[in-house]
């Protein structure tokens, strides 16, 4: 069964952390470089993130994502290197194309920030089951109804998508052309979408009833089947990341 998730099942110190600590960690490492604002802090956070990813043995996954963004990054360097507003000092020239130091430095900062955002998010995403994250948030006061919607959407959307091929088959069986010109394919779109939407609406009402008869509407405090395991590293990590955030703010205000 497919669910919408990039979670990679592994045993590691990072995997063992509770989702909220990881959320805290990711958010801090993502925000600190923006608060401090220089290349050095970005490099430090990126380094920490990459270290965490390799500890979790999922670092390979991130390379493909970074490789995919290569075109974007090259474009960034060309544009900023040549046309950045603060360009003063010439770095080098390729024929008549002049690249400036300031622009290249700015492009480097943007690239590092981009890498950092990706790798920080991946620390959370690759090592945490979405359902565990949602459950942790429900434990901390997120409405169970919102939690349910988030969790079920992750499973029900892929199921709806896998249903589209059956719907498409049903229409082709009634003589609908789905191949050929763009107009033909566009015309095939409605017969596909309408049953998809209508049958999910029907299913939603039935599912809502099925949830009610299993006491989903109960107002008493719910039990969580799985005990939340907070690893002994959680507290030091939360303290450290908080200190990091405080330090970043102080740096920003004072300097």
């Amino acid at each position: 069964m497919r669910t919408i998730s990039l979670y990679v099942e592994k045993e590691s110190f990072i995997h063992g952390l509770d989702p909220v600590t990881k959320l805290w960690l990711t958010a801090s490492l993502l925000i600190i470089p923006f608060i401090v604002g220089n290349i050095e802090s970005t490099l430090v956070c990126l380094g920490i993130n990459l270290a965490l990813l390799s500890v979790a043995r999922v670092i390979r996954r991130i390379f493909s994502i970074l490789a995919m963004s290569l075109v974007l990054i090259i474009t960034l360097f060309i544009i900023q290197g040549m046309f950045y507003g603060g360009n003063r000092t010439e770095a080098f020239a390729l024929g008549s194309l002049v690249f400036y130091r300031e622009g290249l430095r700015y492009a480097t900062l943007l690239t590092l920030r981009f890498f950092n955002i990706i790798s920080a998010s991946m620390v959370l995403i690759l090592t945490t089951r979405p359902s565990d994250l949602i459950e942790s948030l429900v434990r901390r006061g997120l409405s169970p109804r919102i939690g349910y919607v988030l969790a079920s959407v992750l499973q029900i959307i892929p199921m709806m998508i896998s249903n589209t091929s059956t719907i498409m088959d049903a229409q082709r069986s009634r003589g609908m052309e789905t191949e050929g010109r763009l107009v033909t394919r566009m015309k095939a779109y409605l017969p596909l979408m309408a049953p998809l939407v209508m049958s999910s609406l029907v299913a939603t009402q039935e599912r809502a009833m099925a949830l009610e008869v299993r006491a989903f509407g109960a107002r008493n405090p719910k039990t969580f089947l799985h005990e939340e395991i907070i690893s002994r590293h959680a507290l030091p990590i939360r303290v450290l990341t908080s200190l990091g955030l405080v330090a970043a703010v102080i740096w920003r205000v004072i300097l």
């Binding site: 669910t3 089951r129 359902s131 939690g147 349910y148 969790a151 079920s152 499973q155 029900i156 299913a203 039935e206 599912r207 099925a210 949830l211 299993r214 006491a215 989903f216 109960a218 008493n220 405090p221 719910k222 039990t223 969580f224 089947l225 005990e227």
Partner: peptide, 29 residues
Amino acid sequence: QNPFTQVTGAKLTVYEEIAFGLENIGLPR
């Protein structure tokens, strides 16, 4: 009637699915 639409969709295993109602009424673990 319909077995599909009775599945909550929010649980990942049969075990958790059966526990759903019991979590809701707040039984001890």
